[in-house]
Design a protein around this nucleic acid. Structure first.
Lengths: 190, 190
DNA sequence: ATCTGTATATACCGATTGGTATAATGAACT
DNA sequence: AGTTCATTATACCAATCGGTATATACAGAT
């Protein structure tokens, strides 16, 4: 693996483990087995490194999400496909998933929030779009797209948070996806 | 206001705005109009300051939550009362609410996560308990207490995240509470 | 008047922070 | 052979980090 990729991966791991501000540039290059000028040659700054991590590892997920959220008239199916994309990402790359979540919740005046904001906004737009297009099937939802979208994201994200907290061995993605979508659509009495 | 309280409030504000690791002790005492030895006299360390913020400002919320979540056989009512407590806290002290959320999502090896973990676990226990006690009314939920609990927390928290992101002027707490609980219990077709 | 304990400030500590000036590699091209 | 250019290392920078040794101020008790 080349130096650039190596630095990127080491930084992503450390940022996930300790948090962006708690990790020094020196610590990153030490783990990558190189020196600071190399890092600054490729990424320009510590912040550039953060941006590059998101662009490299998270942007592809957003594209998958966009495809999966295509609405063809079947609300449950669309939500299920979308939910599955979340679960797949989280299971395939737990580190990245939790790291991005931590950025979304980070302090508003911190660089980490600035870096993740465009991705966060885009994600929300994609989910809101589902409910906008599905308005014919959902009846008069009276401008509650936002609430539905954040509810949908919330159910998935908080499920994963506590799943990772407990650390159960593995899950059946399709089954969990069905459960979460059912809970979201029909409530807890379903 | 005495020096101690003043330091506590200034630190809470700065931690919320910039994040725990991005704020220096010097910056805190400068805003509070005092000096470092005073801070270390009262709180012992920067970490002690963080613990004290949670104990002082967040612990009371947990007590309110505990009372509000008392289950008397009426599931919708219990969930509604619980939800209202969340919304009340968030509206009364937006800064604290978002700060605690950021801690919950912070890096696992960061001091911030260590500090908030007991409060996070306790909160989750309280919510899980509702669904445990309500098992008679909910039918066979087959061990899905955890999923219901995190779903409930997720719907509320993500609603508030995007509410604060958009920054609408004010909401009718009781109406939003009814909406969220309805969505959670009966799904989006309600 | 002296002692005790709380509360605060000045001035400092070694370590680490993000970042860079300079120079040395080594391969490719002319 | 000489030149160019991407890549990497040594050694350094001022600034800030969390934390503290020491001294002082002041109130209340003896």
């Amino acid at each position: 693996m080349d130096n650039r990729t190596n630095i990127l991966r080491c930084a992503a791991e450390l940022f996930y483990q300790k948090g962006y501000d708690a990790v020094g540039v020196q610590e990153i290059v030490a783990r990558a087995g190189t020196t600071k000028p190399t890092l600054y040659y490729y990424f320009g700054s510590k912040y550039g490194l953060l941006e590059n991590i998101l662009e490299t590892y998270y942007a592809p997920f957003l594209e998958s999400l966009e495809k999966a959220s295509f609405y063809d008239g079947d609300v449950p199916k669309t939500l299920y496909k979308t939910c599955i994309e979340y679960l797949k990402l989280a299971m395939k790359n737990k580190t990245l998933y939790l790291f991005v979540l931590s950025l979304i919740y980070s302090a508003r005046e911190n660089d980490t929030y600035k870096a993740v904001r465009p991705y966060m906004v885009r994600t929300h737009e994609i989910i809101v779009q589902i409910f906008s297009k599905a308005e014919d099937k959902l009846g008069n939802i009276n401008g509650r797209h936002q609430q539905f979208a954040s509810g949908f994201e919330g159910i998935i994200n908080f499920y994963l948070i506590y799943y990772f907290e407990i650390g159960e061995p593995e899950i059946d993605i399709e089954e969990v996806g069905r459960n979460l979508v059912n809970q979201f659509m029909y409530g807890i009495f379903s």
